[in-house]
Amino acid sequence: MDYLTLERANPEPASANESVERELVDRARSGDREAFGELVRRHRAEALGLAGALTRDAHLAEDVVQEALIRAFLHLGTLMDTGRFMPWFHRIVRNQAYMKLRRGGPNGREIPVTGLSAPAGRPERDPNPSDWHDLDRILFRLMDHAAEEARRLTNPEACLVRKEMLQSIRLLLQCLNKRERGIFEARFFGELPPSEIATLFHTSTANVYNSLSRSRVKLQRERIRIAIRDYVQRRSELGLPPKRILAPPP
C-alpha cells in the first residue's frame, strides 16, 4: 500500500477537494489554527492507516502520526506548493515511520507517557478544552521530544533552549485568553509580521504589539508561579526546613 491508494480512498471529488485543501493549507500557513485543525481531521485517519501499514503496530503508528503532525505544523511554511500538502504530509509520515523502525520498533524507544497525559499539578483547562486539545497535545509531545533529544544529542544546550521555548508556549496557552492566543500563535507558529496579524485579527499593529507584550508578561508570571510551586514542593520532599525566621534586624 502506498500513499496514492490512500489518497484515492478519499470520498470527495478530486478537484473540489484540492481547492478546499489548498485554501486550508494557505490559511494554516498564515497562522490559522482552525484550518490546521481541519487539515488534521481530514488526514489523520489515512495517515494512521499508512503508518500502521508501515510499522504494523497501532501504538507506534499513533506515535508516528503525532510526530508527523508536529513536523507538518512547524514546517508548514516551508511547503512551497500548497496544493501538495497531502503527498508532503505523507512523506513526513513515512520518514517518521522509517526512523522509528530503524530505532528498533515499538520497544526500541520509550513511550513518552508523561508528555501525553497531564502531569501532576497541571493547571485546570479552559471550560472549553476541545478548542485547544490538539495543539496542547502537540506541544506536550514536542516538549518531550526536545527533552529526549537533549539527553541523546551532543549539543544539549540547543535542545534545552528548544524545550524551554516549548514549555513557555504551552504555559502561555493556558494563561492567555482566546484572542491573545490567536495573535500569539500567528506570530509564533506562522511567524507572521505584526502588520499581517493585525489584518488577520481586524486590529491595529499597535494592538498586536500590546497583545504580544501582555502575553509575554502573562507567560513570565505563569512560568514563575509554577516554578515556585514546584520548587517549594521539591524542598518539602527533600525534607528541607519549611520555615525559618531570624530575629528582626536592628
Binding site: I228, R229, V232, R235, S236, L240, P242, K243, R244, I245, L246, A247, P248, P249
Partner: peptide, 23 residues
C-alpha cells in the same frame, strides 16, 4: 531575614517597613 515555604513568602525589613513579601 526569614522564609516560609508553606506560605511562599519572605520576612523582610527596610527603612520603610518590617513585613512579608511573597516569593
Amino acid at each position: 531575614y526569614g522564609y516560609d515555604d508553606e506560605r511562599q513568602l519572605f520576612h523582610a525589613k527596610d527603612v520603610s517597613h518590617d513585613g512579608t513579601i511573597s516569593y
